[in-house]
């Protein structure tokens, strides 16, 4: 089955802002957040979208 238009993971520096029901990666700072996002993007084969400065989501299109 192909997954489409689905949030695979969220990466954030602000734990209050994350959605429920999705894998969340908490980070200490922006640098760490970008590093994890880059890796996850490659691993999950999704696109990293930035919602705010504190929150990235990886979406499968």
């Amino acid at each position: 089955m192909d997954i489409e238009k689905f949030i695979l993971a969220a990466i954030t520096t602000n734990p209050k802002k994350v959605p429920c029901g999705v894998a969340v990666f908490h980070c200490d700072d922006k640098e760490e957040m970008e590093k994890i996002t880059t890796n996850l993007e490659a691993i999950l084969d999704g696109i990293a979208h930035s919602l705010t400065d504190e929150l990235y989501v990886i979406v499968k299109h």
Binding site: E34, A48, H49
Partner: peptide, 9 residues
């Protein structure tokens, strides 16, 4: 066009 989050990309 689209949303690209990572500065590197």
């Amino acid at each position: 066009i689209m949303n690209i989050g990572l500065p590197e990309r």
